[in-house]
Design a protein around this nucleic acid. Structure first.
Lengths: 243, 243
DNA sequence: CGAAGAATTGAGACGGCTCAACCAAAGTGG
DNA sequence: CCACTTTGGTTGAGCCGTCTCAATTCTTCG
């Protein structure tokens, strides 16, 4: 399903996406080759092993990056939110599955054309490198979570990662206090993200609720009455601050 | 400890490191700002949170990237072998600890100077992007291992990752057959890499030995009599091939 | 209102962890 | 040169956290 093009200058992710550092000239080149596509919730955006014809930025919605083993075990390795980039220039095939978990609008570029832009535009190339390095740090932090944290720590960490992401998107400075958040993922997907089962994940939500660290109107709607207290559960080395 | 400079053209990692795609002009610029340093086994190369003055390529030896939690739990998030790059241009502070696990020779660049080269030399920038994207894929594959594989599968996968790396370095094509390998890590470090304890790791080595999948002259010296059979233990989706 | 999917809860099994002993190889010092 | 220590690895016994299997409740939607 195609949408009418939005001018890049009006784009909600203009200052965070791969185009963030483009000048107006570069932007107009991108404008010339981009197209918008909306993937319905549950739809596939890319399949591991398949040739990759398009690279894209997430404009709205939420998607997952995952791998499924032959016997059905599944592990999410990334969460894609607005401004995140999908695909890798310079490689013909996709390494992981990418799936929409809500309706997702993509700003899409034909791969070959985009690779030309990466070559021609240092601002795009630099931004892409910065974003990739950031993703690498995130992936490695997640390795620590998967390798060493308990189920309770994982769930607390997951909730805080959502809070952090939301804060950094809106530029807000969250010191502490009450915060509500909308979970973009089902319990099953959270479990696959955290390397746990659905049941263990659910039990940890219940335990956090019992201990007063979270409250919930529904399964997807979480209230964190005291962010600092939740942070104490995560046992990470960020020293209890968010920045 | 400083070593005499080797000419880049004679460098053992010339065609695999960040400089792989440089032409002779670019190479001579790099040559001008590089210096060699050797870190003794066990020494620290970088500490998480500390300012990062140098970026470098591993020329010889082996190093680890890791994070240690306040309570002592530790997780390796990467293994650095010759040609791998350390540090990230564009960020002042280091995200993870980097430690030498053997004597390590680095080809080192002052950060600011190297950032200038990344800006000026598209071949370096592109190579760096490619390497970072590769690392991201590796990190995500490791997330799957940490989140979903059993202890036995993890150890088998670890051994195969060493075999693969060795094969790709030497350009050899390994279909199957017997292979010997020298483990660069102690049992403790392997455990920290795999998200296990020392004891569990040791038991899995014993079990693989009992089942005839590996043989060992010493703890660090492993013989894999039949690579294909070991691959069957890994349960990954590579379809049993190495490529 | 009934059906289907999502989430929660419970009971028991099991894999990996903890604590502890033991062993082998490699120093170290008298 | 040999006791002693140190370090890294292996093995054993029992415990605990998470998984598995199953039932129940909640939510959503036709």
């Amino acid at each position: 399903m195609r949408l009418s093009k939005t001018a890049c200058s009006d784009c909600p992710i203009r200052h965070r996406a791969v185009c963030a550092e483009c000048d107006t000239d570069e932007l107009s080149i991108l404008e010339g080759i981009k197209s918008y596509v909306t993937i319905p919730s549950g739809g596939s955006i890319a399949l591991a092993g398949e040739p990759l014809h398009y690279l894209s930025s997430v404009v709205t919605g939420c998607a997952t990056i995952s791998k499924t083993l032959e016997d059905g075990r599944r592990q999410l390795v990334g969460l894609l939110l607005p401004s995140d980039f999908i695909g890798r220039p310079g490689r013909a095939n996709q390494s992981f599955d990418v799936e929409a978990v809500s309706d997702v609008t993509l700003c899409r570029f034909e791969r070959k054309a985009f690779e030309g832009i990466v070559r021609a535009s240092p601002n795009v190339a630099r931004r892409l490198l910065t974003m990739t390095l950031d993703e690498l740090d995130v992936a490695r932090d997640w390795q620590v979570l998967l390798g060493r944290l308990s189920a309770r720590e994982r769930v607390a960490h997951f909730l805080l990662s959502l809070v952090r992401r939301e804060a950094s998107d809106s530029g807000a400075d969250l010191v502490s206090g009450a915060i509500t958040l909308q979970l973009p993922l089902s319990r099953e997907m959270i479990a696959d993200y955290l390397g746990l089962t659905i049941e263990t994940t659910s039990r940890q939500f219940t335990a956090l609720r019992r201990d007063g660290l979270i409250e919930s109107a529904s399964a997807r709607q979480i209230l964190v009455p005291d962010l600092a207290r939740l942070m104490l559960e995560t046992m990470d080395d960020d020293g209890g601050t968010i920045a």
